[in-house]
Design a binder for these strands. Structure first.
Lengths: 214, 214, 214, 214
DNA sequence: CATGAATGAGTTTTCATTCAT
DNA sequence: TATGAATGAAAACTCATTCAT
């Protein structure tokens, strides 16, 4: 009688569970997320979780890893289309990154990993190095290119890249954490667009390069 | 000097407990923090916490509120010293903000509130509006000033202010969350200095303002 | 016959727990009863209680309600067999009430509710009105019948009914509370029989009805 | 500066504490009564209780004993005024007992001891034997007298005495436990008066002594 | 494979009891 | 004596984990 929708799946289960788990972990944090709620969201029962994952921590790690995979691959591909002007590459990188991260579930990872860094240092370290550092290097390469071509001023590429990530990272966190009460949250296009503009051209009016603290 | 075994501290205790609690909440999150550890860090026993706080949640709120008070006051004072050039005001704001926030325990609040926004929405909302929004407006006033004086390009002040906060916010979170494995974390002076430079002058070389937003 | 280790008892459990709880609550009172003891008496572990009841108070209320149900139903049925003489009806009522209440777990309710009336006023009120008041009215109806038929003197039925309940109520409490050290506790038959005799015929010798209330 | 009302007392303290304690114990039971509340009601601080009483149990026992003393003495005195008719003696006993018990704090003892009999058996036994048994015997003596004089029918005095106590005991418990929601609680005079009437003259109309289950 | 009842270790919370002042 | 801050044992409650079905 209760043979309603089952059958098929099985292969899909771990992924569905990891996805459901990620959503809740992002929303509530590791400790505050109940496995029963994860199971419910994935449409299975509590016990089923343990058929696919050793324990809560394993589920957590798996959820994070699963979400990171595509990001990891994509992070690489973003850089080397060196034909176009550096400023344009930079804009593309920022916007492309948003397409990839912002919309997706992956967008929750930064919030989750900031929150749990203290409790899962290895995982945080791994995330930092394989995603953030990698993305930063890709960005640095664009900046280097710009400098080499004379399009950009001779800044330190790594440091500048990190600065460029500031608004991107902030936006993704703000949007996750404070969306509800930010009645003034600008759209990603507006915010990130303006960020690129400012980072490329600066606030200063283009009459003479005044004091720049040399 | 007052090295007697400190008992009977009615006045001091709530503050000590709130401070100890904040440290642990920032480090581990709300759910993962054991009240007994908070008590131990404050040098008292489990039961003492309940002499001063209704329950764990009340302690949490009190810890956050206590930490926010000085920030709230300081957030106002930062803006109106309109004599100096706007770029300099902006730099001062960023650096001053770091002095106030970065060093201090308060610096943990953004991490904590990003992490717990989902579980304590009212508190997150309150934090966002009384600290972040207020700081953003102060920054916007500086930018407006710069525009009025012709020192800055005619950008949208509120939006630009938000962008300026991006790197500040990111730095404070990175530093809290990933410090341990960021073998390359730039000093605040270097990072924030560069951020101010880029935001003021842009990456672009000062030969002609190429078209950015086509 | 079902002597397998009884796990998976979803249907039976709430009732078993409520019954075990009632026994202990009656014996020790609400506050002095440990949930772990209730669980042990029901043959389950601490945590299981929370599978079926929100918290200790909910268990308490449920235990009382569960026990009251049969009493509630029976309380109604006791009255209207108007053929026999009123004195006989009264005797039957008292004896029947003892059969129903005295033997059973329900017999503990009066003790429990007297003890906890201050802490659970709504529950005590509910018990008073749905059990005691109802039973009193049933008794009053018998007395009214007796008066109408000229078998009883013209007393106030409600007041007299309440008096009749005095010994019944007392007996059930004495028996619960002081049984252990009442080396002289009369059997219910003896005590209640004598109570009925006295209430029907009085102590006074049947030579002239002296003035009692002058 | 805070020499407001103190001085004098000291001798009074234990009694005041015991009285305050009794009130709360009666209302809430032993376990549910917090020593801090007792102290507050007696107008002293928590620690002071331990100046006069070993611990909570000692306070409990002391509170009960203190309240029982007068009852113990009075219980004896009530009986032997053998001049008046037995029915009148009985009425006086019941009414006098109410004067002594009902009004007073002592009136709470039955409720308290019924509630705590399971947890404090020795105390309950002591109460039962020194108060209830003694009072029952006093009553039995009155009944014996009535029988000897031919005023009462030849009943078993001890058993009849116990029955007589039924309504008295019930009334004192009902009144304590259910007063709040008994919108129909008869006055003690009415209830006890009627009880005496019924027990003396019976419900039955004085035409022939019908079936009395011989 | 899947379920969900049951478990018990780990936390929160309460409050009798102590003790420095 | 009196106080009330502090303690810690004990009880309530939660939830990850197990396992019979």
């Amino acid at each position: 009688m209760n043979t309603v929708i089952p059958r098929r799946r099985k292969e899909a289960r771990p992924g569905e569970l990891a996805a459901a788990a990620l959503e809740l972990f992002v929303e509530r944090g590791f400790a505050a997320t109940r496995l029963e709620d994860v199971a419910a969201r994935a449409g299975v029962s509590k016990g089923t979780v343990y058929l696919y994952f050793e324990n809560k921590e394993a589920l957590f790690k798996s959820a994070v890893e699963t979400a990171m995979m595509p990001a990891l691959e994509a992070a690489e591909a973003l850089a080397d289309e060196s034909e176009r002007p550096a400023a344009e590459l930079l804009r593309c990188f920022v916007m492309g990154w948003w397409q990839m991260i912002g919309t997706n579930t992956i967008g929750g990872l930064p919030k989750l990993l900031v929150a749990e860094a203290g409790n899962f240092p290895e995982m945080a370290g791994w995330f930092y190095e394989s995603i953030m550092l990698r993305a930063k290097r890709a960005m640095a390469r664009i900046i280097e290119l710009g400098i080499r071509r004379g399009e950009f001023r001779p800044v330190e590429p790594e440091l500048a890249a990190r600065v460029v990530f500031g608004p991107m990272f902030s936006y993704i966190l703000w949007q996750r954490a404070f969306k509800t009460f930010m009645h003034d949250l600008p759209s990603p296009e507006r915010y990130l667009g303006e960020a690129v503009n400012l980072l490329t051209h600066g606030l200063a009016n283009s009459d003479a390069a005044k004091d720049a603290t040399p």
